[in-house]
C-alpha cells in the first residue's frame, strides 16, 4: 500500500517536472505566434493575452508579404534543401553499399576517411571554399550551396546507412545474383527499398542543419536572387527592427514551415534516433 502511494506521488512529480520543462520549451514560440496576429498597441499592452476581436490584426503579415520576397526565399530554400538531400541520400547510399557489401583493399581506410567529416566541421574550410567558388564562378548560385551541403551531409549518411546495410540478408542478394541481376540492380531493386526507414532517418537528420544554416548562404550566396529563407528573414528582421508587427509576423512565417514539417515527421525522427534501441 505504502509502495503504491509512493509510486503515485513519484508519477505526479515526474509529470510536474516534464510539464514545467515543456512550458519552458514552448513558451517563447507561443508568445511569438500569438503576438504576430495582434495590433501594435495590443502587442505592447498585453503581450501574454490571446488575440481577441479587439486586438486581432494581420498588419504584420501584409507588411511582410508586400516588402520582403519571402516566396522566393522559400523557393530557394526548398531547391537547395531538396536537391542536397537527394544527392546526400543517393550518393551516400551508393557509397555505403560499396563499403558494407564488398571486401576490397582499402575498404576500412576509405570508411575512416569518409567518417572524418563527422567530427571536423566543414566550416573550417570556408576560406578555401569561397576562393574555389569564386574561381569556378559559382558565387551567388544555389549550386554552390548544394555542393557544400552535399559534402557536409555525406559523412553521417554513409556512416548510418552502412550500419543498416550490413543487416540486409546475404541470401536475398545472392538469390538476386543467381537470377542474373547486375550489382546495380541488386542495389536499386533489392537493397534500397529495404533500407528505406534508415534513409528517412538520414533525410530528417540532414535536413535540419541545411534548412537552418546561416553561415554558407551569408558567405557564398548573399545576393537577393539566391537568398535562402533563413538569410532572408535575418536581413529582413534586421531592417525592420522597430516594426514589431512585421518582425513578429516574419518570425512566425519562418517558424511555421519547419514546425509543420516536424510535426509530420516527428514520429520518424524519434524512431530514427531511438532506432538502435528498439531494433
Amino acid at each position: 500500500m505504502s509502495q503504491a502511494r509512493s509510486s503515485l506521488s513519484r508519477t505526479i512529480a515526474a509529470h510536474a517536472v516534464l510539464i514545467t520543462y515543456t512550458l519552458i520549451a514552448l513558451f517563447p514560440v507561443f508568445v511569438i505566434l500569438i503576438n504576430s496576429v495582434k495590433s501594435r498597441r495590443a502587442i505592447f499592452a498585453h503581450p501574454l493575452a490571446l488575440p481577441g476581436p479587439g486586438s486581432f490584426d494581420l498588419i504584420g503579415f501584409t507588411t511582410v508579404l508586400q516588402q520582403g520576397d519571402f516566396l522566393r526565399y522559400f523557393g530557394n530554400s526548398m531547391i537547395v534543401t531538396v536537391t542536397s538531400l537527394v544527392l546526400v541520400l543517393l550518393f551516400g547510399a551508393m557509397a555505403a553499399f560499396a563499403l558494407s557489401e564488398y571486401r576490397f583493399r582499402g575498404n576500412l581506410l576509405l570508411g575512416l576517411y569518409l567518417a572524418l567529416g563527422i567530427m571536423i566541421p566543414i566550416r573550417l574550410g570556408t576560406v578555401a571554399i569561397l576562393q574555389m567558388m569564386v574561381a569556378a564562378h559559382l558565387v551567388n548560385t544555389l549550386l554552390a550551396l548544394i555542393l557544400v551541403y552535399t559534402a557536409q551531409g555525406l559523412p553521417l549518411a554513409v556512416f548510418i546507412l552502412s550500419e543498416f546495410m550490413k543487416t540486409v540478408s546475404d541470401d536475398l542478394k545472392n538469390a538476386g545474383r543467381i537470377d542474373g541481376l547486375s550489382e546495380y540492380r541488386i542495389f536499386f531493386r533489392l537493397v534500397l527499398p529495404l533500407v528505406r526507414p534508415a534513409m528517412a532517418t538520414v533525410a530528417v537528420f540532414s535536413m535540419i542543419p541545411i534548412w537552418n544554416d546561416l553561415w554558407f548562404p551569408l558567405i557564398l550566396a548573399p545576393a537577393e536572387a539566391t537568398k535562402t529563407l533563413t538569410l532572408g528573414s535575418q536581413v529582413f528582421i534586421g531592417q525592420f527592427v522597430t516594426n514589431w508587427n512585421a518582425v513578429l509576423a516574419s518570425l512566425s512565417l519562418a517558424i511555421l514551415p519547419v514546425l509543420v514539417l516536424y510535426l509530420i515527421f516527428s514520429r520518424q525522427l524519434i524512431r530514427g534516433i531511438t532506432a538502435g534501441a528498439v531494433k
Binding site: 514552448l26 517563447p28 535540419i208 537552418n212 533563413t230 528573414s233 517558424i255 516536424y262 524519434i270
Partner: peptide
C-alpha cells in the same frame, strides 16, 4: 525537441 528544429535566426 521543438526548439532544436528552429533556426538560429528564429
Amino acid at each position: 525537441f521543438i526548439p532544436t528544429i528552429l533556426s538560429f535566426v528564429i
